[in-house]
Design a protein around this nucleic acid. Structure first.
Lengths: 336, 336
DNA sequence: TTGTAAGCGTTATCAG
DNA sequence: CTGATAACGCTTACAA
């Protein structure tokens, strides 16, 4: 139970604790044999440097904090794995906090992590609340922060995000090319930065292909399957069905498809459906869902690397990384 | 950037640092006014106790480690949320490590966490490898560990798990009551403790209802949808199809359903399907999937509370908590 | 009720 | 190359 300390090792070998310390941190000069002897003995004694003491004396925690809106869905889980991979390789611990999609909880999480003195933060904000100001204040005070995923392009800070405009454009264009004439976009929350970007991409495709304004619509939904269902129910009730639907994410798409099917409307024969942020479910549902895949793992890795550089002051200017994805057409969005 | 310390506060008020310390830890006697004055001044100065220093002097890290097989699927994510809720309320940080279903990585994760001196561990093991011995050695050496989810009932340690036998029995019995005569169980990995228990529950139902041995089968699959698909493909190839299939989890079930459908086999008309470990997808697929819901959140909370007690020595004997679930019959397993 | 001072286990500076 | 020793910021006997 008792932890062997550097002193125990030093005493055993009749060397100073500094020597032992040096043996374990090869940035100092120390004779090779001494070092090997120390390491060997330490090993035998079951000594392992106490990370807490190291943290205190170096005034670093070697912890970083990651704040995500949720990690129930695979999207942020995969991102986190990417982050962990980078930081664990550098001997850091990654503290994960999830905000349950609530800005208040997000702010609390960030404050808790800052109080626990993490060396840096990766934040994937929920909605655009007033929190950003607070984060930027911390950032300007010298706190390393990297923003991720749901961020504005204009944000003056290091950030990593998906090129939502471009890929929403591609997805919408695909539907147009399939000769669908009436296309509705179930757009997530309009207050979400990513939503705004995807709406812009969607509209750009409509304009480029000269789809008349009365032939497309942007409808606000939430992020959940139930909300996709609700919108479809309303559309059915209002006899206002398009021939193609583009959804904010796969969950909304799956909700929409389920509701359409249960009303005897066939996908894609009667109405085509397109998802976004591809999940593992796409191949398992009927029809298989067309969707846009985001490079989640890379997103995490990139954000982590940016933060790591920031922590070590090797990043002078805020840097922005914009990632691209992959559009895979499956059964749900093609003419037979 | 510079952190305000206890000394700064003490100096400002001309009190000793111990007084300041005491003001922040109300377990010592201190005059009420002094305390309030100190707290107020500290607040003004932006002082916040340095957690690292506290950790070092108390020889505790106030960190606990959680090792899960994966957190891509909602199952462990929800469990983690339950754990976090309990420990954050006690001022602990929760370090999460995922083993990618690999025992070697799991062992490495546990060792890393122990080296980083977490005050206790919650381990959800991947497979039954030799790792258990190592964990029990640490446990016996006084290290607080709680095991979770995929554990043997005979394990002599605190543990929290789902009553797999019972609920696999209920699920299988439901299929029998629906008058399905040939029932196959796609059983996950046989080396998984939960698999063994569910197989036992399945067989118990078969025996109770006197289903002849030639009318049921236990087939090893993995944990993934693809593996469910593969098994169905093989069965189709061998002209060996039952009239009902019970699956290790919803993913396997969804894979099975997808493969059956793509071969023109109707669910549940031709073959009924039953899932397990209910996911949010159950209502979104066609047909809606019958499944057994596990209390993930409670599982996390219970494990966390057990560990917390162990850390604080208020738990003398290893304790076992066995949780129950909920069987929901949907479209995939009923006769019309 | 308050202050003094010795830890906690390292790193890092400065001599030697 | 190695050893003493002062930090790091807090808790906690012990004394007053």
């Amino acid at each position: 139970m008792k932890h062997v300390t550097i002193k125990d090792v030093a005493k055993r070998l009749n060397v100073s604790i500094s020597s032992v310390s040096r043996a374990f941190n090869d940035k100092y000069d120390i004779k090779k044999e001494t070092k090997e002897l120390i390491l060997k003995t330490a090993e035998e004694m079951g000594y392992f440097p106490n990370p807490i003491a190291k943290k205190l004396s170096q005034n670093k925690t070697f912890n970083i904090g990651v704040v995500v809106p949720e990690f129930i869905n695979e999207y942020y889980s995969e991102i986190i794995i990417g982050i962990q991979e980078v930081f664990m390789a550098h001997g850091y611990q990654v503290l994960i906090a999830q905000s349950d999609e609530k800005p208040e909880i997000e702010l609390k999480n960030v404050k808790t992590l800052i109080h626990s003195m993490v060396d840096g933060l990766i934040i994937a904000p929920t909605m655009d609340s007033g929190n950003m100001e607070y984060y930027l204040k911390e950032l300007n005070a010298g706190y390393p922060i990297v923003f991720m995923s749901r961020v504005k392009e204009t944000l003056e800070a290091s950030k990593v995000y998906f090129n939502n405009k471009k890929w929403a454009f591609f997805a919408a264009e695909h539907l147009i090319r399939q000769r669908y004439k009436n296309i509705y976009y179930l757009a997530g929350y309009k207050s979400l930065n990513v939503s705004i970007d995807r709406i812009e991409g969607f509209k750009r495709a409509m304009n480029k292909h000269k789809i008349p304004k009365e032939n497309y619509k942007v409808i606000e939904t939430g992020l959940l399957a139930e909300e996709g269902m609700q919108v479809i129910e309303d559309l059915i009730y209002n006899h206002d069905l398009p021939d193609a639907i583009f959804c904010f994410n796969d969950r909304v798409a799956m909700g929409a498809i389920a509701k359409l099917k249960s009303n005897g409307i066939k996908v894609p024969e009667d109405i085509a459906v397109m998802g976004f942020t591809e999940t593992r479910m796409v191949d398992l549902i009927t029809p298989k869902l067309s969707s846009v895949k985001q490079p989640t793992f890379d997103m995490g890795k990139n954000a982590a690397e940016l933060l790591f550089k920031q922590i070590n002051n090797s990043l002078m200017e805020p840097q922005t990384i914009v990632l691209n994805g992959e559009l895979t057409i499956r059964e749900s969005s093609v003419r037979n």
